[in-house]
Simulated assay, not measured.
Amino acid sequence: MKKQNTTPNGKNGKTQSREWFEALVIAALVAAILRMFVIESYRIPTGSMEKTLLAGDFLFVNKFVYGAKVPFTDISLPKVHDVRRGDIIVFKFPRDRSLNYIKRCIALPGDNLEIRNQQVYINGKGMQLPPHAQFIGTKMPAGVPEFQIFPSMSDYNKDNYGPIHIPRSGDVITLTSATLPLYRDLIAYEGHTVSLVGDQVFLDGQAANRYTVSRNYYFAMGDNRDNSLDSRYWGFLPENDIVGQAMMVYWSWDPDLPLLFDPVEKIASIRWNRIGLAVH
């Protein structure tokens, strides 16, 4: 009679291989679920958050704190708390949702925001500059419009901006030729078509002078105020596009050094003092 090959624990090779395969599948599923709903890794690609975060920092992002999104749906899991002013958040870039951006939340739904001579005011009260925020460019005077500023055709610039109201669910906004640049993207995001014929705004093909906002929006800025593509340039951040809150730096090194061609120099560039750094 043919002898069956067994392992020391008495199981045959096929059974053991199957158990290993099942364990790997389960581990992969658990990792995918954790990445989808709990925590995800994110790499800082640019200097828009310097000196708070550096290009080459690798972060853990807390996805469940704001209520993780169920993929391919508009469903969100229960959240721990709402986004707060000052939170560093990762979100889908509104102009290309295949990209993730990271900025600091400056204003919440319903807030009134204004920047005067680089000082941010929320609801009329001056907001303290984040501890490591910086200005590296030339200050721009009020009334001098900046190229690509939001909304178009305004006289805003990076250092003198607004006043502007951050839309929240239930807000009723007035639609005119003057306000349309401010709300066009928001209305399109909420699933409507909007156009301007002469001085008349048309919503879903019908003349309209009012619109009720159905979602909440935020205003985000980088800590490196003069080198950040943020809400001052692309507008309001929809709540549904927020991925999570930055939590901790788990790795950091110089992103400009190639590991393949100069591994010694790359390893020498590790920023040991940043590993384990809490993000706030």
Rank of each mutant, 00 (worst) to 15 (best):
H132L: 12
Y183F: 12
E114S: 08
S169K: 15
G137F: 01
A31T: 13
N209A: 09
S152A: 15
H192P: 00
E239N: 09
P78M: 11
M248S: 01
F147S: 13
G86K: 07
A32T: 09
L182I: 13
L186I: 11
H132T: 07
S169W: 01
Q128A: 15
L54G: 03
N100E: 13
D262Q: 13
A55I: 01
R43D: 08
P130D: 10
I33T: 11
L260G: 01
T193V: 00
D199A: 06
D96N: 15
D256P: 00
R43P: 00
V80M: 09
K158C: 08
K103M: 05
N62Q: 12
V144R: 11
Y211F: 14
F72N: 12
F147W: 05
R104Y: 04
G244Q: 07
E19P: 00
L259R: 03
R43F: 03
R271L: 02
N157D: 11
R232K: 14
F135W: 10
A246F: 03
A188C: 03
A28G: 15
Y101I: 02
V25P: 00
T179K: 02
F60R: 05
A188S: 02
Q118P: 00
S48D: 05
I166M: 11
F60D: 04
L53A: 08
F150W: 14
L113H: 04
S41W: 00
E19N: 10
L260W: 09
S252G: 04
F150A: 07
K79M: 03
A178G: 00
H81Y: 08
W251V: 02
L196I: 02
L24G: 15
S177N: 08
V172R: 14
W251M: 11
M127F: 03
F147G: 01
Y217H: 09
N112C: 02
D256G: 09
G110W: 07
P238I: 10
P258N: 13
M49R: 04
R18I: 15
